[in-house]
C-alpha cells in the first residue's frame, strides 16, 4: 500500500496538520514504507478471531452520580492562549 502526495494532503487535512509542500513528498514516501511494513498483517489468518480492544477482559466500572469537582476556572485558564470573561476565544466561527 502506498500513499500518494494527494492522499497525504487529505489525511493531513483530516488530522488538521499544516504541511509545507516540500514535506508532502517526504511524508508520502515514509508513510508508504510504514504501511508497506504494516501490510504484512494481511497474510495473517484471522477468520473467526474476535477483535481485542483491551488487554484485560474487564467491564466498565460505574461512578456514583455525585458532584466531586469544584470551580477551578482561574487555575485552568491561567495559561490558556486566549480568554475573556471566562470564555476561551477562537477566531470567529461562521456556520
Amino acid at each position: 500500500m502506498s500513499l500518494s502526495p494527494e492522499q497525504v494532503r487529505q489525511v493531513a487535512h483530516l488530522a488538521r496538520l499544516e504541511l509545507k509542500n516540500e514535506q508532502v513528498e517526504h511524508y508520502a514516501r515514509q508513510l508508504s514504507n510504514i504501511l508497506g511494513m504494516v501490510d504484512r498483517l494481511s497474510a495473517a489468518q484471522t477468520d473467526g478471531v474476535p477483535e481485542m480492544a483491551h488487554p484485560l477482559d474487564m467491564t466498565q466500572r460505574l461512578r456514583p452520580d455525585v458532584v466531586t469537582e469544584t470551580d477551578r476556572r482561574d487555575v485552568f485558564q491561567e495559561h490558556a492562549p486566549a480568554v475573556q470573561d471566562g470564555l476561551f476565544l477562537v477566531p470567529k466561527v461562521i456556520e
Partner: peptide, 11 residues
C-alpha cells in the same frame, strides 16, 4: 458568537 474582539467565545 457575540463580538469578543471579533472572536468567538467558548463556554
Amino acid at each position: 458568537h457575540e463580538n469578543f474582539s471579533g472572536m468567538t467565545g467558548i463556554d
